[in-house]
Structures are given as C-alpha cells and as structure tokens.
Amino acid sequence: IDVRFTVNGLDVTVRVRTEEIAERVKELAKNGVDWREIQRIAEELNK
C-alpha cells in the first residue's frame, strides 16, 4: 500500500504492508512528524 502525504511542501510516498500501518503513517504525517522519521518508523513497522 502506498501512502502519500505532504510535509513542509514535500510530497512523500511511503510503501507499507498493511492498512493499519498506513493509518499510523497518516497520523504521524498529520502531527507534523519529520518525513525521515516517518520513513524510519514505517520501515520498522513493515518488518
């Protein structure tokens, strides 16, 4: 599942395995978490 969001004007796409992880990623993006941090968290959750 590809999750797309915009952080500080940057369009970011993170690929995740499940809808649940996708929701977590969207939540982080909404809360203004840095995209590199979101990427790292997504990689952890995908394991």
Rank of each mutant, 00 (worst) to 15 (best):
I1T: 05
I1E: 03
I1V: 08
I1H: 07
I1P: 02
I1D: 02
I1Y: 12
I1Q: 05
D2N: 10
D2C: 13
D2T: 13
D2G: 04
D2A: 10
D2F: 15
D2W: 15
D2I: 14
D2S: 10
V3S: 01
V3P: 01
V3G: 01
V3N: 01
V3M: 06
V3L: 13
V3W: 02
V3H: 02
R4M: 13
R4C: 12
R4A: 09
R4S: 11
R4G: 06
R4I: 14
R4D: 06
R4Y: 11
F5H: 02
F5G: 02
F5K: 00
T6H: 12
T6R: 13
T6A: 07
T6S: 11
V7I: 13
V7W: 12
V7F: 12
V7T: 06
V7N: 05
V7H: 08
V7L: 09
V7D: 06
N8M: 09
N8I: 03
N8F: 04
N8D: 14
G9V: 01
G9T: 03
G9F: 03
G9L: 03
L10P: 01
L10T: 13
L10R: 12
L10A: 09
L10F: 14
L10G: 05
L10V: 15
L10N: 09
D11G: 07
D11N: 12
D11R: 11
V12Y: 15
V12Q: 05
V12M: 10
V12C: 07
V12T: 04
V12E: 03
T13F: 11
T13V: 15
T13M: 10
T13D: 03
V14L: 14
V14P: 00
V14T: 03
V14D: 00
V14F: 11
R15N: 13
R15A: 06
R15Y: 11
R15F: 12
R15L: 08
R15C: 10
R15W: 15
R15Q: 08
V16M: 02
V16D: 00
V16T: 04
R17A: 15
R17T: 08
R17G: 07
R17E: 09
R17M: 15
R17D: 05
R17N: 13
R17F: 13
R17Q: 11
R17I: 12
R17W: 13
T18M: 02
T18K: 02
T18C: 03
T18N: 14
T18G: 03
T18P: 00
T18F: 03
E19Y: 13
E19L: 14
E19Q: 15
E19P: 14
E19M: 14
E20Q: 13
E20K: 11
E20S: 10
E20N: 07
E20F: 12
I21W: 02
I21N: 03
I21F: 05
I21Y: 03
I21Q: 06
I21A: 06
I21C: 02
I21R: 00
I21E: 04
I21V: 06
A22N: 01
A22C: 04
A22M: 06
A22K: 05
A22Q: 04
A22G: 08
E23N: 13
E23Q: 14
E23Y: 11
E23W: 12
E23R: 14
E23L: 13
E23C: 06
E23F: 12
E23D: 11
R24H: 13
R24P: 00
R24S: 05
R24I: 15
R24N: 04
V25H: 00
V25T: 01
V25Q: 00
V25W: 01
K26D: 02
K26G: 04
K26I: 14
K26P: 00
K26N: 06
K26R: 15
K26S: 07
K26C: 07
K26Y: 11
E27D: 09
E27C: 07
E27I: 10
L28C: 04
L28G: 01
L28K: 01
L28V: 02
L28F: 06
L28H: 04
A29H: 13
A29P: 00
A29E: 04
A29M: 11
A29S: 06
A29C: 06
A29G: 05
A29W: 15
A29V: 15
K30R: 14
K30A: 14
K30T: 10
K30C: 08
K30V: 09
K30G: 08
N31S: 14
N31A: 15
N31I: 11
N31G: 07
N31K: 13
N31H: 10
N31Q: 15
G32N: 09
G32L: 08
G32I: 06
G32V: 06
V33P: 01
V33L: 11
V33S: 05
V33G: 04
V33A: 08
V33W: 09
V33Q: 05
V33Y: 09
D34N: 11
D34Q: 09
D34E: 11
D34F: 10
D34W: 08
D34R: 08
W35N: 03
W35F: 14
W35K: 03
W35L: 15
W35Y: 13
W35P: 10
W35D: 02
R36S: 12
R36P: 14
R36F: 12
R36D: 13
R36C: 09
R36W: 12
E37Y: 08
E37G: 04
E37F: 06
E37R: 07
E37M: 09
E37I: 13
I38E: 00
I38S: 00
I38Q: 00
I38V: 06
I38N: 00
I38Y: 02
I38F: 03
I38H: 00
Q39S: 08
Q39W: 13
Q39V: 15
Q39H: 06
Q39T: 11
R40D: 05
R40Q: 09
R40F: 07
R40W: 07
R40S: 08
R40E: 07
R40C: 08
R40Y: 08
R40I: 08
I41F: 08
I41T: 05
I41N: 02
I41L: 07
I41D: 01
I41R: 05
A42S: 06
A42W: 03
A42P: 00
A42D: 00
A42K: 01
A42Q: 01
A42C: 05
E43F: 09
E43P: 01
E43D: 14
E43C: 11
E43W: 09
E43R: 07
E43L: 09
E44N: 07
E44K: 07
E44R: 07
E44Q: 08
L45G: 03
L45M: 12
L45R: 02
L45P: 01
L45Q: 03
N46Y: 04
N46Q: 03
N46T: 03
K47Y: 12
K47V: 12
K47P: 03
K47E: 13
K47M: 15
K47F: 12
K47N: 14
K47S: 14
K47C: 09
